[in-house]
């Protein structure tokens, strides 16, 4: 039994003959608000999928809320990348959110507690008045809130967010990050993001992942931290809203 919300020990994952995660050690405390940074293909989404029990490690160990990842699923909320589903699907907001109540084989419909949890989640993301709207009629920001509500409907202890603001403009992204900040007061939050400004503003700690993981116990982003994450020299520019640029280096 472990006291960590998430504990990975020397965890490696090989997919299709390639090493995606290489001896990753990670300990996330209950209540921690952690961002995972890194380049595309660096293993960030794979790391979340290991925590969700979707990928089995090739070696090493993974514990989630003191259990195996598969056993812990019903206590974990997950917000995938928005592009994973069809916006033309004929479904209402409340019907998507109540999917969050399904965590195993189930016969029949939803009960009173399910409906209460759905209403709570919709209130939390301020979408109660759109509960009967078709998802396909919503804006990008609203769809993202629906997916967050779906994750919250299972009343999770751990919230996993996979690039939740990548398809949103900056203004809407800001409001979504404000919501994450609130949620982080109540549960452990792990977020994969490329949004340096929001990460610097919001999270408590940063892990940089590019097959191997480097943990940084503060949210301060330096060029050195980003260089470790992205695998090449990077300058961090700050003019109102920090962002990254590639610094001059060999091979560019």
């Amino acid at each position: 039994m472990t006291d960590f919300a998430v504990e990975l020990k020397a965890l490696s994952v090989n997919l299709g003959g390639q090493t995606v995660l290489d001896r990753v050690d990670l300990s996330v405390n209950p209540g921690e608000y952690l961002a995972i940074l890194g380049p595309n293909g660096g293993g960030k989404s794979t790391l979340l999928k290991v925590i969700l029990g979707l990928h089995r490690p090739s070696s090493g160990e993974a514990q989630v809320l003191g259990q195996s990842p598969r056993q812990a699923r019903r206590k974990v909320g997950y917000v995938p990348q928005q592009s994973a589903f069809d916006l033309d699907f004929p479904i209402r907001v409340s019907e998507v959110v109540r999917m969050g109540r399904l965590d195993s084989f189930r016969v029949g419909g939803f009960n009173q507690d399910d409906r209460l949890a759905v209403d709570e989640a919709l209130d939390r993301v301020e979408l109660r008045d759109l509960s009967l709207a078709p998802v396909g009629a919503l804006s990008g920001g609203e769809v993202q809130r629906v997916l967050i509500a779906r994750a919250l409907a299972r009343r999770p202890q751990l919230l996993l967010l996979d690039e939740p603001t990548s398809s949103l403009d900056e203004r809407i992204g800001h409001s979504i990050w404000d919501l994450f900040d609130e949620l982080s007061q109540e549960m452990t939050v792990m977020i994969v993001s490329h949004d340096m400004g929001a990460v610097a503003r919001s999270v408590g700690s940063v892990a940089c992942l590019n097959q191997q993981l480097h943990m940084h116990p503060s949210k301060e982003l330096t060029s050195e931290i980003l260089e470790a994450a992205y695998g090449c020299p990077i300058d961090l520019l700050a003019h109102g809203h920090p962002h990254r640029v590639l610094a001059d280096h060999e091979g560019t």
């Binding site: 589903f85 699907f89 999917m99 969050g100 399904l102 965590d103 084989f105 419909g109």
Partner: peptide, 23 residues
């Protein structure tokens, strides 16, 4: 009648269904 919520979820977002522990 018995399994519509599962069918609906798998049709809407199969990856989420898997991640949530649904069969």
């Amino acid at each position: 009648f018995l399994f519509h919520p599962l069918f609906e979820t798998i049709c809407f977002d199969e990856e989420y269904a898997e991640a949530s522990g649904m069969p």
